[in-house]
Structures are given as C-alpha cells and as structure tokens.
Nucleic acid binder design. Structure first.
Length: 258
DNA sequence: ATGGCTGAGCTACTCAGA
C-alpha cells in the first residue's frame, strides 16, 4: 500500500501537475495539504475520472486538507482537534491493512511566523492541543499514522543552514520539542529512522533560486506508531515534482507499507 | 536579505506562506 503526502499549495492551480504525478506514482492514498479552496470548488471530478474518491476539508483562500483515495477510507472526520481560529488543518480516516485497522491523520500545522506575534502563539497552542488529542486517539486505537506538513524542522540536519532558522517558528527549540513530545508518545519519524544521516528536503522557497541552490528544509513528515514499524517497506522523498513548471514549493513524500 | 516568488480573491492590492 502506497501512501503519499504532499503540500500542493493550491489544488486548482496545481491540478495538471497533481494528475500527472498520480499517473506516474500510482498512490493508493494521497494526502493533500494547502488545497486553498472551499469544498464546493474542489476538483472532485478530475480525481474521480482516474479512479480516486476525494474527502475534503476545505477553506476559502487558505489552508485546507484532503484525502484522495483508490481504496475505501472509513469514518472520515474533521474534528480531531478544536481549532480556535476555525482553520481547516486536520482530516482523519480509517483504513484496513491485513487484519489491522489504522487511523490516518492528515495535518497542516500552522506556520507560526513571525515569532513575536499571535501567529506563533497560535502554532504553539495548536500543537499542544494536537498532542493532547493524539494521546486520546492512542487510548482508542494504538495503530496511528500521522502525515502532512508539520512546519517543523526536527533537527539541525533537516535544513540547509540551521543558524538562519534557530529563531524561526520552524526551527525554534520550543517548537522542535513539540515534535519530540509527539515522538515520545510512541511514534517514529519514518524518513529519519530509515535514513540516519541523510540530508534531504521536502520544501524549497520560490524565491532567490532556492531550488537551484538546494536551499531547502525537511518539514513534511510521516510518523508511524511504534507498533507499525514492521509494516514499513520504504520511504522516499520524490524531488521530481518540485522540478516541474508551475510547481508547488513542497515535494511529495512517499511511504510504502504492507 | 522580515524578502527576492506565488496563489487567492478580485480587478488594485492585501494577506499568507516558510
């Protein structure tokens, strides 16, 4: 089973790129973030034509998440957390792998910059609230997969120049500790456990030739609960979509589990 | 380099992204 996570930075502006990518990558499930559209304008038909069902939690202009799937996803919910600002950032569902029921949690964590504003406070509060609700989820079902755009640089190796991000909402220790708190509940950062010392990124800024200079950061992640680690077949950051014309600033991360 | 680019909403320009 191939599950892919991708912050597409607008599903409508990116629809051709996304459809081309699906035809090549053939995911069973595609988890999208930053779809930047309300449900009624989501391109359901485009995905249906190539065999995918769309479960959408949209929002006008900003944010928005979706689960695009070839297989059945049950019990779709948009209320895992209560969001103070009512932003569309979490969509969850259940899938069956062999005899196990696995909860899929697709997230778009707030960016949090600049750090001396209420945006940063919102990010911290959001993460605390998320961690609390993951604890609750774990007590109901211990098999969890959390994927998406975390807007967190986990460690120094995960960005081209850490010094530039140590006082940034993506790299501040206080925020990185929230990521560790999550891991300490019983999760692994799948990319990092399979690639101990590898420096790869999932995001490159549009400006200043960041892509060409490989000035990137690894902020999109797959976390798997420890009881699912034996199911991992492979994890891969696919840089190809970032090199296309009209790309998203993020590139997909691909997980294969059995 | 607190922004060099991009998208949405809208139709001139702001807000947001990371």
């Amino acid at each position: 089973m191939k599950i892919i996570s991708w912050n597409v930075n607008s599903v409508r502006a990116r629809i051709t790129n996304i459809l081309n990518y699906i035809k090549q990558a053939k995911p069973d499930i595609l988890l999208l973030q930053e779809i930047k559209t309300q449900d009624e304008n989501f391109p359901y038909e485009e995905f249906k034509k190539i065999g995918y069902e769309s479960h959408v939690y949209g929002q006008k202009s900003y944010n928005g998440v979706a689960i695009i799937s070839k297989i059945e996803v049950k019990n779709i919910k948009k209320n895992l957390i209560s969001d103070d600002l009512k932003q569309s950032r979490v969509i969850t569902g259940e899938i069956q792998i062999k005899r196990s029921k696995i909860n899929l949690i697709n997230i778009y964590v707030p960016n949090g910059n600049p750090i001396d504003t209420e945006k940063y406070e919102y990010k911290k509060k959001w993460l605390n609230n998320f961690i609390l609700n993951i604890k609750k989820e774990l007590s109901k079902n211990s098999k969890l997969l959390i994927a998406g755009d975390f807007n967190i640089i986990p460690e120094e190796i995960d960005v081209y120049d850490f010094k530039r991000y140590e006082n940034d909402a993506l790299g501040k220790l206080e925020i990185r500790k929230k990521f560790r708190e999550l891991l300490n509940l019983g999760f692994k950062d799948v990319y990092r456990i399979k690639n101990r010392n590898k420096q790869e990124y999932t995001f490159w800024d549009y400006f200043a030739g960041s892509w060409q200079k490989n000035y990137g950061m690894r902020i999109d992640h797959f976390l798997l609960s420890n009881n699912l680690l034996d199911n991992i077949v492979s994890i891969n950051i696919n840089k190809n979509p970032r090199s296309k014309t009209k790309p998203s600033d993020h590139t997909p991360i691909e997980l294969e589990i059995s």
